[in-house]
């Protein structure tokens, strides 16, 4: 073989000399997963797996932050073997990847059951998988996964790390070795700028940055590499779900508003009862038909109609020059 050397994507040992550790926490799943509206079962196609826009932006932000600190990036994802091709693509960017096995296969899960999974346990498992690489100064998550979930994972990660947390970010930059400055959207096009002390867990929106492409050398290097699987905790991520869930969702039923009782109309004649019930003989305002000559006149007619019926104040339609 004359090709370049292949190195498997082995987990690097804890090497603090390699600079601060940035963790990209990815949820790699079918980007077009569907939930059956009748029984709530989820279908995921292993061929559809990929990085969601939010996760891709998160990974790019993690890479940029690591570059600005001369640090390194570890990407961790929970999932079955079918997500390995995507992790390999991530590894081609020079990122160390680790997969936490999941009992989830591609199919047959209930959405409600997944919602009730133990996110706290999941956060512990994810951090246990990262621990061999050192203590993260920054964890970046996508703020929204395509197949939803509770969105509670970043909060549990922050809790476990004793870190600050910021959500819904569109920009991220380092502010010295102690902090990051982040931006998030507010209403009316405003943005809020926050200084977040490290360690921090930041969730970013799928906006603002585009994930870079791996170099050809990087792609070649990982072409047949194995993705390391973390079994340090001896349990799979979803294995912790049953029984220990902190979120309990019971059976759901359709919303059925209470019936409103209307008294039966008085009278002996069925015709009169029917008339009373339908209000057919009650006088109503006839519809107003207007056909004014020009637009200004039409506007005045409409405004006076609205004023007459109390939709607008009468003084708002105070006649200007030439109004009736």
């Amino acid at each position: 073989m004359t090709g370049p050397n292949v190195s498997p994507v082995v987990a690097a040992p804890d090497d603090s000399a390699a600079g601060p550790l940035v963790v990209a926490c990815l949820r790699i799943t079918d980007l077009r997963a569907t939930v059956d509206p009748l029984d709530g079962s989820i279908s995921r196609d292993p061929l559809g797996v990929g990085l969601s826009p939010a996760d891709a932006a998160g990974l790019e932000q993690a890479l940029r932050m690591a570059e600005s600190w001369d640090g390194r990036v570890v990407a961790v994802a929970v999932g079955p073997e079918s997500i390995d091709p995507i992790l390999r693509d991530v590894a081609a960017l020079g990122v160390t990847v680790v997969r936490v096995p999941s009992a989830h296969d591609s199919d047959g899960h209930r959405y409600v059951a997944e919602l009730a999974e133990d996110e706290h346990g999941l956060a512990e498992t994810v951090l246990a998988a990262v621990r061999p690489f050192g203590r993260p100064v920054l964890v970046v998550c996508g703020d929204r996964s395509v197949d939803r979930g509770t969105g509670a994972l970043p909060a549990f990660l922050a809790h476990e790390l004793g870190a600050a947390q910021a959500l819904g970010l569109v920009a991220l930059r380092s502010d010295g070795p102690e902090a990051v400055v982040v931006e998030r959207r507010l209403d009316a096009g405003w943005r809020e700028r926050l200084r977040v002390l490290l360690p921090a867990v930041c969730s970013v929106e799928g906006a603002g940055v585009r994930l870079r492409r791996a170099s050809l050398a990087g792609a070649l290097a990982v072409a047949d590499a194995a993705v390391p699987v973390d079994r340090s905790t001896g349990r799979t991520a979803a294995g912790s779900a049953a029984g220990t869930g902190v979120l309990h969702i019971g059976a759901t039923r359709p919303y059925a508003p209470r019936t409103r009782v209307i008294p039966a109309p008085e009278g002996h004649d069925p015709r009169l009862r029917l008339l009373a019930l339908t209000g057919a003989l009650v006088a109503h305002d006839p519809p107003t038909v207007v056909h004014p000559a020009d637009a200004a006149e039409a506007a005045d007619v409409l405004l006076s109609f609205l004023a007459r019926h109390g939709y607008i104040d009468a003084e708002d339609v105070a006649p200007e020059a030439g109004a009736p």
């Binding site: 090709g3 050397n5 994507v9 082995v10 690097a12 990122v95 170099s215 290097a221």
Partner: peptide
């Protein structure tokens, strides 16, 4: 992860 820093990779085919 070591990454070859060349822009050319050579193969037999």
């Amino acid at each position: 992860m070591p990454e070859p820093r060349t822009d050319v990779a050579a193969f037999d085919a």
